[in-house]
Amino acid sequence: MDDVVRRTALPGRSQSPHDKLARGLGYFSIALGVAEMVAPKAICKAAGVEGIENVVRGYGAREIATGAAILTSHNPEPWIWTRVAGDLADIATIATGLRQDNNSKGRSALTLAALAAVTIVDLACANGLNSEKASRKTAARDYSGRSGFPQGLQAARGAARDFKVPDDMRTPELLRPWT
């Protein structure tokens, strides 16, 4: 039944709070990904980790791809779950900054707190999308182009005029006695 809802849903009409949040997360992913691609050294310094600029560039490419997928997909839920997985990878990467012997452990801890907050928002969005997409009440259906006739409405017009009424309407032809 999922395909029927998808084919009959009006394009661009889903305006639920979770869909709006998903769109915002898509734009956020793209912006963050561009920042990670353009200035990985500054991102590493702000996060309190050093020497992982290439990893940050790779994470930037992941963020851009995920953001684009969220914005272009009819159902952004799987891509929001991809963001959650990416957040967990980011948390694991930044957690290495707490083990480094440097003076930036405070920045690493602050970055971990920010990542945890973003992960909570991503989880709330993914769970909200999952619960609302499971119900058929959320899709606006458009049946205006349907007539109910297999060959269309124009073919059905006047079709009853050529109908010949049988002599005996009560008994089907195959059940009538042989004469």
Rank of each mutant, 00 (worst) to 15 (best):
L32V: 13
L88N: 06
N102V: 02
V34C: 08
E173V: 07
A160H: 07
A113F: 07
P11N: 05
R170W: 07
Y27D: 06
P172L: 15
L71I: 14
D3E: 12
A126R: 00
N102K: 10
T179S: 06
Y27T: 05
R107I: 00
R57N: 02
I120A: 15
I80W: 02
R170I: 09
F163P: 00
E173I: 06
L25T: 03
T8K: 10
F163E: 07
W81K: 13
G128P: 00
K164F: 02
M37Q: 14
Y27E: 09
L129N: 06
L71R: 12
D87V: 04
P172S: 11
I70V: 15
T82R: 13
G12V: 04
C125M: 01
R7E: 12
G145M: 12
A140H: 09
D87R: 09
R176P: 01
G97C: 00
A89I: 04
K164P: 01
W178V: 15
D168P: 01
S14A: 10
G152C: 08
G152V: 14
W81A: 06
R99H: 07
G26D: 01
A92D: 11
G48P: 08
N102E: 04
S16I: 03
W178S: 07
W81E: 13
W79Q: 09
I30G: 02
P166K: 15
G60Q: 03
R7F: 11
A126Y: 00
D162F: 08
V5G: 03
R161V: 12
A139M: 08
T111D: 01
P177T: 06
Q154G: 00
K41N: 02
R176C: 03
Q151P: 01
R99D: 11
T93K: 08
T138N: 13
A159P: 03
G67R: 11
T111P: 01
V49Q: 05
R161K: 14
A61N: 06
G152W: 09
A85G: 06
V56F: 01
P40S: 14
F163I: 05
G24R: 11
R57P: 00
R170N: 05
A160W: 10
I64F: 07
S29N: 15
T179M: 03
L153K: 10
T179R: 09
A116Q: 08
V55W: 05
G86P: 00
L174M: 10
R146Y: 14
V38L: 14
V34P: 00
V56W: 02
A31G: 09
L110G: 03
D168V: 08
S29R: 15
A155P: 04
S29K: 08
A89H: 05
E63R: 15
H18R: 09
A22C: 07
K164C: 08
A159N: 03
G148Q: 01
T82C: 06
